[in-house]
Amino acid sequence: MIQLYNVYKSYNNTPALVDISFIIKKGAFVFVTGPSGAGKSTLLKLLYRWESYDKGQVLVNGINVGKLNFSKLWQLRRHIGVVFQDYKLLPGKTILENVAFALEIVGAEKKTIRYKAWEALKNVGLSHRKDAYPMELSGGEQQRVAIARALVNNPKILLADEPTGNLDPDMASEILHLFEKANADGTTVVFATHSQNVLREGNHAVIALKRGKIADTRIVA
């Protein structure tokens, strides 16, 4: 599903990723870990082509990411759901509208949008709060909305950039379970975290980064 071959990336001559190669198979759940500045976020950004890379090759769902030009990027991104540490919810929309927005963007059939958005919220246990605005929710709840939004288009890959970074351990564990649920439904998950608790609890394959290099791997499925 995701293949990286000798990928290099630098910012103003400062290396951010050095000679990264790995393969993540379809349906896998992989943690990407490492201290701050190790290159976790950069690595994820390469996968959904928010950043370009200097050398090497990145294949995502059979698409050669480096060869995509700007006007075709949507073809890649529609296979990927992304969840961020800061949720990136639109404050002026209700949480149902926030989830529906992702459906509108991909041109989903109008009649189905409301129902699908509601169902996605139900899957994260928030359908009863569908008319609330993001600011009225706790951090954990906001992250659940972000997960619902990332999953509503049934992406093949779910990328998470420190999704539990702002949450307490109980909430983090709840969020992790949501990702595991999505993974059980067949979505390939790449979960970046520096939290040892999450890593221990998850017990999935791990890619550990240190100063932009792969320092360690643990059963990359």
Binding site: Y48, W50, F70, S71, L73, W74, Q75, L76, R77, R78, I80, V82, K88, L90, F101, A102, I105, V106, N153
Partner: peptide, 14 residues
């Protein structure tokens, strides 16, 4: 800006 970034991320066409 935030909305547009979200659109780009979610796979909106240009």
């Amino acid at each position: 800006k935030n909305e547009i970034e979200l659109m780009l991320l979610t796979g909106a066409t240009p």
